[in-house]
Nucleic acid binder design. Structure first.
Lengths: 213, 213
DNA sequence: GTAGCATTGTGAATTGTTTCACGGAGAAAA
DNA sequence: TTTTCTCCGTGAAACAATTCACAATGCTAC
Protein backbone atom coordinates (compact mmCIF):
# COMPACT_ATOMS: atom_id res chain seq x y z
CA UNK A 1 0.00 0.00 0.00
CA UNK A 2 1.52 3.27 -1.10
CA UNK A 3 1.62 6.54 0.79
CA UNK A 4 -1.75 8.13 1.50
CA UNK A 5 -2.04 11.90 2.07
CA UNK A 6 -2.82 12.84 5.69
CA UNK A 7 -5.78 14.88 4.50
CA UNK A 8 -7.30 11.83 2.89
CA UNK A 9 -6.81 9.82 6.07
CA UNK A 10 -8.57 12.56 7.99
CA UNK A 11 -11.53 12.61 5.62
CA UNK A 12 -11.87 8.84 5.82
CA UNK A 13 -12.68 9.25 9.50
CA UNK A 14 -15.45 11.67 8.50
CA UNK A 15 -16.92 9.12 6.09
CA UNK A 16 -16.68 6.46 8.76
CA UNK A 17 -18.72 8.58 11.16
CA UNK A 18 -21.39 9.11 8.53
CA UNK A 19 -21.54 5.39 7.78
CA UNK A 20 -21.76 4.57 11.47
CA UNK A 21 -24.79 6.81 11.84
CA UNK A 22 -26.70 5.47 8.83
CA UNK A 23 -29.77 3.43 9.92
CA UNK A 24 -29.31 -0.32 9.52
CA UNK A 25 -32.16 -0.63 7.00
CA UNK A 26 -30.34 1.57 4.54
CA UNK A 27 -27.95 -0.77 2.75
CA UNK A 28 -26.38 1.54 0.18
CA UNK A 29 -25.14 5.09 0.01
CA UNK A 30 -24.04 7.42 -2.80
CA UNK A 31 -20.93 9.55 -2.93
CA UNK A 32 -23.00 12.70 -2.99
CA UNK A 33 -24.66 11.71 0.29
CA UNK A 34 -21.33 11.11 1.98
CA UNK A 35 -20.12 14.39 0.50
CA UNK A 36 -23.07 16.39 1.78
CA UNK A 37 -22.68 15.05 5.32
CA UNK A 38 -19.05 16.17 5.42
CA UNK A 39 -19.43 19.35 3.39
CA UNK A 40 -17.28 18.09 0.52
CA UNK A 41 -17.79 17.34 -3.18
CA UNK A 42 -18.81 13.93 -4.52
CA UNK A 43 -15.66 13.82 -6.65
CA UNK A 44 -13.51 14.27 -3.58
CA UNK A 45 -15.26 11.44 -1.81
CA UNK A 46 -14.80 9.07 -4.74
CA UNK A 47 -11.15 10.07 -5.09
CA UNK A 48 -10.55 9.44 -1.38
CA UNK A 49 -12.27 6.07 -1.43
CA UNK A 50 -9.98 4.92 -4.22
CA UNK A 51 -7.24 4.24 -1.65
CA UNK A 52 -9.33 1.53 -0.03
CA UNK A 53 -9.33 -0.88 -2.94
CA UNK A 54 -13.09 -1.28 -2.55
CA UNK A 55 -15.29 -0.21 -5.42
CA UNK A 56 -18.93 0.76 -5.31
CA UNK A 57 -21.40 -0.10 -8.02
CA UNK A 58 -22.70 2.53 -10.41
CA UNK A 59 -26.29 1.67 -9.79
CA UNK A 60 -26.44 1.47 -6.00
CA UNK A 61 -23.41 3.39 -4.87
CA UNK A 62 -21.50 1.92 -1.95
CA UNK A 63 -22.63 -0.89 0.32
CA UNK A 64 -22.74 0.70 3.76
CA UNK A 65 -21.52 -2.28 5.76
CA UNK A 66 -18.83 -3.25 3.29
CA UNK A 67 -17.49 0.27 2.91
CA UNK A 68 -17.49 0.72 6.64
CA UNK A 69 -15.55 -2.49 7.13
CA UNK A 70 -13.01 -1.42 4.53
CA UNK A 71 -12.50 1.96 6.18
CA UNK A 72 -12.15 0.28 9.57
CA UNK A 73 -9.57 -2.13 8.20
CA UNK A 74 -7.68 0.79 6.77
CA UNK A 75 -7.98 3.26 9.63
CA UNK A 76 -8.24 1.33 12.83
CA UNK A 77 -5.57 -0.85 14.40
CA UNK A 78 -6.08 -4.62 14.18
CA UNK A 79 -5.02 -5.09 17.78
CA UNK A 80 -5.03 -2.58 20.61
CA UNK A 81 -2.80 0.41 19.96
CA UNK A 82 -1.56 2.12 23.10
CA UNK A 83 -1.14 5.80 23.79
CA UNK A 84 0.71 7.78 26.45
CA UNK A 85 0.18 11.39 27.44
CA UNK A 86 2.79 13.74 28.87
CA UNK A 87 1.41 16.52 31.02
CA UNK A 88 -1.69 16.21 33.18
CA UNK A 89 -2.36 19.90 33.67
CA UNK A 90 -5.36 21.77 32.41
CA UNK A 91 -5.33 20.54 28.82
CA UNK A 92 -3.88 17.12 29.59
CA UNK A 93 -6.63 16.14 31.98
CA UNK A 94 -9.31 17.31 29.56
CA UNK A 95 -7.76 15.14 26.85
CA UNK A 96 -7.53 12.13 29.14
CA UNK A 97 -11.21 12.46 29.84
CA UNK A 98 -12.09 13.17 26.22
CA UNK A 99 -10.29 10.13 24.81
CA UNK A 100 -11.16 7.67 27.56
CA UNK A 101 -13.29 4.83 26.25
CA UNK A 102 -13.72 6.52 22.88
CA UNK A 103 -12.30 3.65 20.81
CA UNK A 104 -11.76 0.12 22.02
CA UNK A 105 -8.57 -0.29 20.00
CA UNK A 106 -6.95 3.00 20.91
CA UNK A 107 -6.34 3.54 24.57
CA UNK A 108 -4.36 5.93 26.77
CA UNK A 109 -2.60 3.59 29.16
CA UNK A 110 -0.09 5.87 30.89
CA UNK A 111 0.55 9.50 31.71
CA UNK A 112 3.79 11.26 32.59
CA UNK A 113 4.59 14.31 34.66
CA UNK A 114 7.64 16.23 35.84
CA UNK A 115 5.87 17.53 38.95
CA UNK A 116 6.27 15.09 41.90
CA UNK A 117 3.01 16.29 43.39
CA UNK A 118 1.17 14.85 40.42
CA UNK A 119 2.90 11.62 39.53
CA UNK A 120 2.60 8.23 41.26
CA UNK A 121 -1.14 8.79 41.32
CA UNK A 122 -4.14 7.70 39.31
CA UNK A 123 -5.40 10.62 37.21
CA UNK A 124 -8.69 10.19 35.35
CA UNK A 125 -8.28 6.47 35.89
CA UNK A 126 -4.83 6.42 34.33
CA UNK A 127 -1.58 5.75 36.18
CA UNK A 128 0.71 8.78 36.21
CA UNK A 129 4.45 8.14 36.21
CA UNK A 130 7.47 10.36 36.61
CA UNK A 131 8.72 11.43 33.21
CA UNK A 132 11.99 9.75 34.13
CA UNK A 133 10.31 6.37 33.92
CA UNK A 134 8.84 7.13 30.50
CA UNK A 135 11.29 5.13 28.39
CA UNK A 136 10.84 1.99 30.49
CA UNK A 137 7.06 2.26 30.70
CA UNK A 138 6.64 3.02 27.00
CA UNK A 139 8.73 0.01 25.98
CA UNK A 140 7.16 -2.37 28.47
CA UNK A 141 3.63 -1.38 27.57
CA UNK A 142 4.37 -1.27 23.85
CA UNK A 143 3.10 2.28 23.44
CA UNK A 144 3.32 3.67 19.90
CA UNK A 145 1.56 7.03 20.16
CA UNK A 146 2.37 9.98 22.41
CA UNK A 147 0.41 13.10 23.28
CA UNK A 148 2.36 16.18 24.36
CA UNK A 149 0.41 18.50 26.66
CA UNK A 150 3.25 19.96 28.69
CA UNK A 151 4.40 23.61 28.92
CA UNK A 152 5.93 24.83 25.65
CA UNK A 153 9.50 24.89 26.94
CA UNK A 154 9.44 21.23 27.95
CA UNK A 155 7.89 20.00 24.72
CA UNK A 156 11.13 19.25 22.85
CA UNK A 157 12.52 17.36 25.83
CA UNK A 158 9.42 15.19 26.00
CA UNK A 159 9.50 14.65 22.23
CA UNK A 160 13.10 13.43 22.51
CA UNK A 161 12.14 11.02 25.29
CA UNK A 162 9.18 9.75 23.25
CA UNK A 163 11.25 9.24 20.12
CA UNK A 164 14.03 7.58 22.11
CA UNK A 165 11.51 5.15 23.57
CA UNK A 166 10.29 4.15 20.12
CA UNK A 167 7.12 6.17 19.78
CA UNK A 168 6.07 6.56 16.12
CA UNK A 169 3.40 9.26 16.20
CA UNK A 170 2.93 12.40 18.29
CA UNK A 171 -0.10 14.60 18.87
CA UNK A 172 1.43 17.89 19.96
CA UNK A 173 -0.48 20.57 21.83
CA UNK A 174 2.58 22.63 22.72
CA UNK A 175 3.26 25.77 20.75
CA UNK A 176 6.74 24.69 19.83
CA UNK A 177 7.86 23.22 16.50
CA UNK A 178 9.17 19.78 17.37
CA UNK A 179 12.36 18.38 15.91
CA UNK A 180 11.90 14.66 15.31
CA UNK A 181 13.27 12.13 12.80
CA UNK A 182 11.38 12.05 9.51
CA UNK A 183 9.82 8.65 10.19
CA UNK A 184 7.95 9.95 13.24
CA UNK A 185 4.63 11.55 12.39
CA UNK A 186 3.71 14.76 14.22
CA UNK A 187 0.30 16.39 14.22
CA UNK A 188 0.31 19.83 15.77
CA UNK A 189 -2.75 21.33 17.42
CA UNK A 190 -2.04 24.95 18.14
CA UNK A 191 -5.00 26.36 20.03
CA UNK A 192 -3.63 29.88 20.29
CA UNK A 193 -2.91 29.98 16.56
CA UNK A 194 -6.38 28.70 15.75
CA UNK A 195 -7.86 31.41 17.94
CA UNK A 196 -5.78 34.12 16.29
CA UNK A 197 -6.89 32.93 12.86
CA UNK A 198 -10.55 32.97 13.77
CA UNK A 199 -10.21 36.40 15.38
CA UNK A 200 -8.43 37.72 12.30
CA UNK A 201 -11.05 36.52 9.82
CA UNK A 202 -13.87 37.58 12.13
CA UNK A 203 -12.64 41.15 11.64
CA UNK A 204 -12.62 40.92 7.83
CA UNK A 205 -15.48 40.64 5.38
CA UNK A 206 -13.65 37.71 3.90
CA UNK A 207 -15.06 34.21 3.76
CA UNK A 208 -13.41 30.85 4.10
CA UNK A 209 -13.57 27.69 6.11
CA UNK A 210 -10.91 25.17 6.93
CA UNK A 211 -11.32 21.66 8.17
CA UNK A 212 -8.46 20.76 10.36
CA UNK A 213 -7.55 17.75 12.31
CA UNK B 1 -5.80 44.77 1.61
CA UNK B 2 -6.66 41.72 -0.45
CA UNK B 3 -7.50 38.24 0.80
CA UNK B 4 -4.77 36.47 2.74
CA UNK B 5 -4.67 32.65 2.91
CA UNK B 6 -5.55 31.23 6.35
CA UNK B 7 -2.30 29.27 6.38
CA UNK B 8 -0.31 32.46 5.95
CA UNK B 9 -2.21 34.08 8.80
CA UNK B 10 -1.40 31.07 10.96
CA UNK B 11 2.29 31.22 10.16
CA UNK B 12 2.42 34.93 10.95
CA UNK B 13 1.54 34.05 14.53
CA UNK B 14 4.52 31.69 14.55
CA UNK B 15 6.82 34.46 13.37
CA UNK B 16 5.39 36.78 15.96
CA UNK B 17 6.20 34.33 18.75
CA UNK B 18 9.76 34.03 17.51
CA UNK B 19 10.15 37.81 17.36
CA UNK B 20 8.68 38.18 20.84
CA UNK B 21 11.32 35.82 22.24
CA UNK B 22 14.30 37.46 20.56
CA UNK B 23 16.51 39.26 23.12
CA UNK B 24 16.21 43.04 23.02
CA UNK B 25 19.86 43.57 22.09
CA UNK B 26 19.36 41.73 18.82
CA UNK B 27 17.96 44.35 16.47
CA UNK B 28 17.73 42.42 13.21
CA UNK B 29 16.79 38.94 12.06
CA UNK B 30 17.10 36.99 8.79
CA UNK B 31 14.40 34.99 7.06
CA UNK B 32 16.40 31.80 7.56
CA UNK B 33 16.41 32.36 11.32
CA UNK B 34 12.65 32.84 11.44
CA UNK B 35 12.31 29.80 9.18
CA UNK B 36 14.44 27.56 11.39
CA UNK B 37 12.51 28.50 14.52
CA UNK B 38 9.24 27.48 12.87
CA UNK B 39 10.56 24.56 10.83
CA UNK B 40 9.85 26.23 7.49
CA UNK B 41 11.90 27.38 4.53
CA UNK B 42 13.34 30.91 4.20
CA UNK B 43 11.46 31.36 0.94
CA UNK B 44 8.17 30.63 2.65
CA UNK B 45 8.90 33.17 5.35
CA UNK B 46 9.72 35.89 2.83
CA UNK B 47 6.63 35.04 0.79
CA UNK B 48 4.42 35.24 3.89
CA UNK B 49 5.90 38.54 5.02
CA UNK B 50 5.03 40.10 1.67
CA UNK B 51 1.42 40.54 2.85
CA UNK B 52 2.54 42.98 5.55
CA UNK B 53 3.76 45.72 3.23
CA UNK B 54 6.95 45.94 5.26
CA UNK B 55 10.21 45.11 3.51
CA UNK B 56 13.47 44.03 5.07
CA UNK B 57 16.86 45.12 3.82
CA UNK B 58 19.17 42.74 1.98
CA UNK B 59 22.07 43.49 4.26
CA UNK B 60 20.47 43.20 7.70
CA UNK B 61 17.33 41.26 7.12
CA UNK B 62 14.30 42.42 9.09
CA UNK B 63 14.25 44.90 11.94
CA UNK B 64 12.89 42.91 14.87
CA UNK B 65 10.84 45.67 16.48
CA UNK B 66 9.48 47.00 13.21
CA UNK B 67 8.53 43.59 11.85
CA UNK B 68 6.89 42.71 15.14
CA UNK B 69 4.86 45.91 15.11
CA UNK B 70 3.75 45.23 11.56
CA UNK B 71 2.65 41.69 12.39
CA UNK B 72 0.80 42.96 15.45
CA UNK B 73 -0.97 45.61 13.40
CA UNK B 74 -1.97 42.93 10.93
CA UNK B 75 -2.90 40.11 13.31
CA UNK B 76 -4.12 41.64 16.51
CA UNK B 77 -7.27 43.69 16.99
CA UNK B 78 -6.83 47.42 17.52
CA UNK B 79 -9.38 47.45 20.30
CA UNK B 80 -10.57 44.62 22.51
CA UNK B 81 -12.20 41.81 20.56
CA UNK B 82 -14.65 39.75 22.57
CA UNK B 83 -15.23 36.01 22.53
CA UNK B 84 -18.00 33.76 23.81
CA UNK B 85 -17.85 30.04 24.48
CA UNK B 86 -20.75 27.62 24.29
CA UNK B 87 -20.39 24.54 26.46
CA UNK B 88 -18.58 24.47 29.78
CA UNK B 89 -18.08 20.74 30.04
CA UNK B 90 -14.78 18.95 30.01
CA UNK B 91 -13.24 20.64 26.96
CA UNK B 92 -15.00 23.96 27.44
CA UNK B 93 -13.62 24.55 30.92
CA UNK B 94 -10.12 23.62 29.82
CA UNK B 95 -10.37 26.15 26.99
CA UNK B 96 -11.69 28.86 29.31
CA UNK B 97 -8.67 28.34 31.52
CA UNK B 98 -6.27 28.07 28.60
CA UNK B 99 -7.34 31.31 26.95
CA UNK B 100 -7.86 33.37 30.11
CA UNK B 101 -5.43 36.29 30.22
CA UNK B 102 -3.52 35.02 27.21
CA UNK B 103 -3.97 38.17 25.12
CA UNK B 104 -5.08 41.54 26.40
CA UNK B 105 -7.05 42.31 23.23
CA UNK B 106 -8.82 38.98 22.90
CA UNK B 107 -10.97 38.01 25.83
CA UNK B 108 -13.65 35.42 26.59
CA UNK B 109 -16.36 37.49 28.23
CA UNK B 110 -19.29 35.07 28.36
CA UNK B 111 -20.13 31.39 28.35
CA UNK B 112 -23.37 29.63 27.46
CA UNK B 113 -24.92 26.37 28.55
CA UNK B 114 -28.11 24.42 27.99
CA UNK B 115 -27.88 22.68 31.38
CA UNK B 116 -29.62 24.75 34.12
CA UNK B 117 -27.32 23.26 36.73
CA UNK B 118 -24.40 25.01 35.12
CA UNK B 119 -25.63 28.40 33.97
CA UNK B 120 -26.23 31.52 36.06
CA UNK B 121 -22.90 30.83 37.70
CA UNK B 122 -19.35 32.09 37.40
CA UNK B 123 -17.19 29.42 35.73
CA UNK B 124 -13.46 29.97 35.59
CA UNK B 125 -14.16 33.61 36.34
CA UNK B 126 -16.56 33.95 33.45
CA UNK B 127 -20.31 34.49 33.73
CA UNK B 128 -22.27 31.54 32.37
CA UNK B 129 -25.66 32.29 30.79
CA UNK B 130 -28.47 30.13 29.51
CA UNK B 131 -28.06 29.55 25.79
CA UNK B 132 -31.45 31.20 25.38
CA UNK B 133 -29.93 34.51 26.38
CA UNK B 134 -27.10 34.15 23.89
CA UNK B 135 -28.40 36.48 21.19
CA UNK B 136 -29.01 39.31 23.66
CA UNK B 137 -25.71 38.89 25.49
CA UNK B 138 -23.69 38.61 22.28
CA UNK B 139 -25.20 41.77 20.85
CA UNK B 140 -24.97 43.77 24.07
CA UNK B 141 -21.38 42.80 24.72
CA UNK B 142 -20.39 43.20 21.06
CA UNK B 143 -18.96 39.68 20.80
CA UNK B 144 -17.55 38.77 17.37
CA UNK B 145 -15.99 35.33 17.96
CA UNK B 146 -17.62 32.15 19.23
CA UNK B 147 -16.17 28.88 20.47
CA UNK B 148 -18.30 25.76 20.16
CA UNK B 149 -17.51 23.11 22.77
CA UNK B 150 -20.90 21.47 23.12
CA UNK B 151 -21.94 17.87 22.33
CA UNK B 152 -21.82 17.12 18.59
CA UNK B 153 -25.58 17.01 18.16
CA UNK B 154 -26.08 20.52 19.54
CA UNK B 155 -23.29 22.10 17.53
CA UNK B 156 -25.40 23.18 14.55
CA UNK B 157 -28.03 24.72 16.81
CA UNK B 158 -25.38 26.75 18.61
CA UNK B 159 -23.80 27.77 15.31
CA UNK B 160 -27.18 29.04 14.12
CA UNK B 161 -27.62 31.04 17.31
CA UNK B 162 -24.11 32.48 16.98
CA UNK B 163 -24.60 33.45 13.35
CA UNK B 164 -28.01 34.92 14.10
CA UNK B 165 -26.47 37.07 16.82
CA UNK B 166 -23.88 38.47 14.43
CA UNK B 167 -20.82 36.41 15.27
CA UNK B 168 -18.26 36.47 12.44
CA UNK B 169 -15.81 33.68 13.34
CA UNK B 170 -16.25 30.29 15.00
CA UNK B 171 -13.72 27.95 16.58
CA UNK B 172 -15.48 24.60 16.45
CA UNK B 173 -14.50 21.64 18.62
CA UNK B 174 -17.58 19.58 17.78
CA UNK B 175 -17.24 16.74 15.30
CA UNK B 176 -19.96 18.04 13.07
CA UNK B 177 -19.57 19.95 9.81
CA UNK B 178 -21.21 23.29 10.46
CA UNK B 179 -23.46 24.97 7.93
CA UNK B 180 -22.87 28.71 8.11
CA UNK B 181 -23.08 31.58 5.59
CA UNK B 182 -19.91 32.01 3.52
CA UNK B 183 -18.93 35.24 5.24
CA UNK B 184 -18.57 33.51 8.61
CA UNK B 185 -15.18 31.94 9.13
CA UNK B 186 -15.07 28.50 10.75
CA UNK B 187 -11.97 26.78 12.04
CA UNK B 188 -12.56 23.16 12.97
CA UNK B 189 -10.51 21.38 15.59
CA UNK B 190 -11.35 17.71 15.46
CA UNK B 191 -9.48 15.99 18.26
CA UNK B 192 -10.71 12.50 17.44
CA UNK B 193 -9.70 12.89 13.79
CA UNK B 194 -6.27 14.16 14.77
CA UNK B 195 -5.83 11.15 17.04
CA UNK B 196 -6.89 8.75 14.30
CA UNK B 197 -4.42 10.33 11.89
CA UNK B 198 -1.54 10.06 14.33
CA UNK B 199 -2.45 6.47 15.16
CA UNK B 200 -2.64 5.61 11.47
CA UNK B 201 0.76 7.03 10.59
CA UNK B 202 2.30 5.60 13.74
CA UNK B 203 1.53 2.18 12.32
CA UNK B 204 3.20 2.89 8.96
CA UNK B 205 6.83 3.39 8.10
CA UNK B 206 5.77 6.52 6.34
CA UNK B 207 6.93 9.96 7.32
CA UNK B 208 5.19 13.27 7.30
CA UNK B 209 4.39 16.20 9.51
CA UNK B 210 1.59 18.68 9.38
CA UNK B 211 1.34 21.99 11.09
CA UNK B 212 -2.22 22.70 11.90
CA UNK B 213 -4.13 25.45 13.60
C1' DG C 1 36.41 52.66 -5.33
C1' DT C 2 35.43 48.21 -6.43
C1' DA C 3 35.11 43.24 -5.65
C1' DG C 4 32.89 39.80 -3.10
C1' DC C 5 29.42 38.25 -0.25
C1' DA C 6 24.89 37.30 1.95
C1' DT C 7 20.43 38.73 1.86
C1' DT C 8 15.84 40.38 0.07
C1' DG C 9 11.60 40.40 -3.14
C1' DT C 10 9.39 38.16 -6.58
C1' DG C 11 8.45 35.90 -11.38
C1' DA C 12 8.56 31.32 -12.78
C1' DA C 13 8.64 26.47 -11.95
C1' DT C 14 7.27 22.84 -9.24
C1' DT C 15 4.64 20.19 -6.31
C1' DG C 16 0.35 18.94 -4.20
C1' DT C 17 -4.67 18.90 -4.04
C1' DT C 18 -9.24 19.35 -5.82
C1' DT C 19 -12.49 19.45 -9.45
C1' DC C 20 -14.03 18.40 -14.09
C1' DA C 21 -15.71 15.49 -17.46
C1' DC C 22 -16.46 11.42 -19.73
C1' DG C 23 -16.50 6.25 -20.69
C1' DG C 24 -18.68 2.41 -18.80
C1' DA C 25 -22.03 -0.18 -16.06
C1' DG C 26 -26.10 -1.62 -13.78
C1' DA C 27 -31.19 -0.81 -13.29
C1' DA C 28 -35.74 0.35 -14.80
C1' DA C 29 -39.09 1.19 -18.16
C1' DA C 30 -41.03 0.78 -22.66
C1' DT D 1 -34.31 -5.59 -26.57
C1' DT D 2 -33.42 -1.02 -26.58
C1' DT D 3 -33.53 3.37 -24.48
C1' DT D 4 -32.68 6.28 -20.74
C1' DC D 5 -31.43 7.13 -16.30
C1' DT D 6 -27.87 7.91 -12.59
C1' DC D 7 -23.91 6.82 -10.70
C1' DC D 8 -18.83 5.18 -10.27
C1' DG D 9 -13.72 5.32 -11.46
C1' DT D 10 -10.24 7.90 -13.21
C1' DG D 11 -7.29 10.63 -16.71
C1' DA D 12 -6.83 15.26 -17.42
C1' DA D 13 -7.43 19.99 -16.21
C1' DA D 14 -7.61 23.55 -12.96
C1' DC D 15 -6.34 25.49 -8.91
C1' DA D 16 -3.51 26.32 -4.72
C1' DA D 17 0.65 26.26 -2.17
C1' DT D 18 5.45 25.94 -1.93
C1' DT D 19 10.05 26.22 -3.61
C1' DC D 20 13.47 27.72 -6.92
C1' DA D 21 16.36 30.95 -8.88
C1' DC D 22 18.00 35.26 -9.93
C1' DA D 23 18.36 40.44 -10.27
C1' DA D 24 18.93 44.04 -7.08
C1' DT D 25 20.77 45.81 -2.81
C1' DG D 26 23.68 47.21 0.83
C1' DC D 27 27.44 45.93 3.58
C1' DT D 28 32.53 44.75 4.36
C1' DA D 29 37.22 44.29 3.06
C1' DC D 30 40.92 45.61 0.61
Amino acid sequence: MKTVPPKTVGRLTLYWRTLRDIPADQTHVYSHVLAAKSRLTPAQVRRDLMVLGYAGTPAHGYNVQLLRKHIEAFLFPASEQRVAIAGVGNIGRALLKFFSGRRPTLRIVASFEANPEKYDRLIQGCQCYSIEKAETVIREMDISVGIIAVPDKEAQFVADVFVGAGIRGILNFARAPLHVPPDVYVEDIDLAMAMDKVAYFARRQQAGSSAVG
